[in-house]
Each structure stands twice: as structure tokens, then as C-alpha cells.
Amino acid sequence: MLSKNTFSNALKDPRNIQILWLSSFLLTGIICLDWLANVSYYFFVFISALSVQILFIRVNHLPWSALKSAVITSLGLCLLLKVNQPIFGLLAGAVAIGAKFLVRLNSKHIFNPANLGILVLVLLGEGWISPGQWGNEGLIVVFIAICGLLVTMKVGRLDTGLSFLTVLLIAEFLRTVVYQGWPMDHFLHTFSSGTIFLFAFFMITDPMTSPNSRKARLIWGAFLALTSFWLSSFMQLYTAPIWALFIWSLFTPIFDKIFIQPKFKWI
């Protein structure tokens, strides 16, 4: 039955763990943070993302395990995006997965699927992000951060997440504490939000839309952090990381050209 082998096989594919963690965050939200009202939206997101993914799996003769990516994208959308009408979940899911198969370069998709879904809905004025939705509770934030570390280590993308967080942390520290003179807790408050860790570990670390070489990823993550810092501190844009990721995913192919390295494979 459940042999040791089955278990270690299941652990081999980082997507499994990612699905496990992301769905546990979602359940935490539903149970502890009153997200129950959004369940119909979640349903629509899954329905559309999975059906579009199945469509392309059939068309492109991909392995069925590619469904996992759609599950991860759906979970990402559910965790980050809020919409006015649950039915817009259909659009978000379809845009995210559709773009993954249609907008491609060098056999890699360009945009992070969930990120693009969020961006389109925000631009349409039908969706928004609630950066404060996790509150600033130590327990949840630590949980997200640790799970994120584990997953990114598994995918070998810890570098992107850490480079992003470190640069953002330093920039924020220099601006708020050193330059403006706010006390430490003002600065720490910014980094006690679950949204930022979710983004750093589960969104930008997507192996398919980040550069292939480690060196490139470190630089890429740092640029992402600086852009995001600039947008949020000087443009007062609360969706800053989403925009930053959108912009920098356009440059991923260039990074891949400069730093040559084979493309990532899930298993």
C-alpha cells in the first residue's frame, strides 16, 4: 500500500509539495480569515484553469502531470486575487493558463500565469489584491515563510526568492529606518505580511518564468525587488510586486541569452 517508495516518489516532484502548502494556506484563509464567502470564486478559477489546461494537454499531447501546474496557478489566483463577481474567476483562470500556452518564446512561456491573471483583472477594474489580508500574525507569516523556503529549496529556486527578499529588505531599511528615521517596528511591520512571503516564495520562484542560470536569477530577483520597491514607495502602488514581475518576466529571455543554461524540468 503506502510504501516508503510511494512517499519519496511523491516528494520528488516539488509541485506536489507546492500544492499541499498552497492549499493549506487557502484552507487557513477560509477557516481562520473568513474567506468562506469567496468559495464560489475559487470554484470558478479551478474550473476554468483546469479545463483550459486539459484542452492544451490534449492539443499538445502533454503528460497528464501537467495538470499540477494548473492547480498551482489556480491556488495562486485564489490566494492573491479578489474579485467583485465570482464569475470573473473564469476569466482569471482562462487568461492565466491560456497565456501560458499561447505566449511563448524559446519553448518557455513568458508570463507567470497567475501573475498575468491577476494583472488583467486588476486592469479591468474587476479584481484587486488585499495586501493586508493575512494580518500581521506571527503564526501564519512564519508558516508561509517556512513552507516557502522548503518548496523553493526543492525546486532549486531559493536564490530568486532570497535575492528578492534581501534586496527589498535592504532598500526598505535604508529608506524607512536610516533615511526617514522611523523606528524599527515600522520597518518590521512591512515584512510581517504574509503576502510578501507568498509572493517571494511561491510566485517569482516559478522555474518556468525565471531565468535558467543561477547568476541570472540572482540579478533578476534583485531587479525585481528594486522595481517593486520603487513602485510601492514612490508611486504608492500597492500592487507593485505584480507589476514588477510582469515587467521583468519580459526580460527573462534576454537573461537566458546572456547566461546560457539548460531549461528547467519538473521531474
Binding site: 503506502l2 510511494t6 511523491a10 506536489n16 481562520c32 503564526l139 508558516f143
Partner: peptide, 25 residues
């Protein structure tokens, strides 16, 4: 919203999700 309750939820979630997943896989 008590912390104990939260803990139970986490444990339930982890067990509840991983076991069926392994079977499905």
C-alpha cells in the same frame, strides 16, 4: 480563533490532504 483550534486545523489539513493525494497519485 483560539490557537489550539488553529493547530488542530493545520494538523487535519496536512493529514487530510496528503493521504488522499498519495492514493490518487
Amino acid at each position: 480563533k483560539s490557537p489550539k483550534f488553529l493547530l488542530y486545523i493545520f494538523l487535519f489539513m496536512l493529514i487530510g490532504l496528503s493521504v488522499p493525494w498519495l492514493f490518487v497519485r
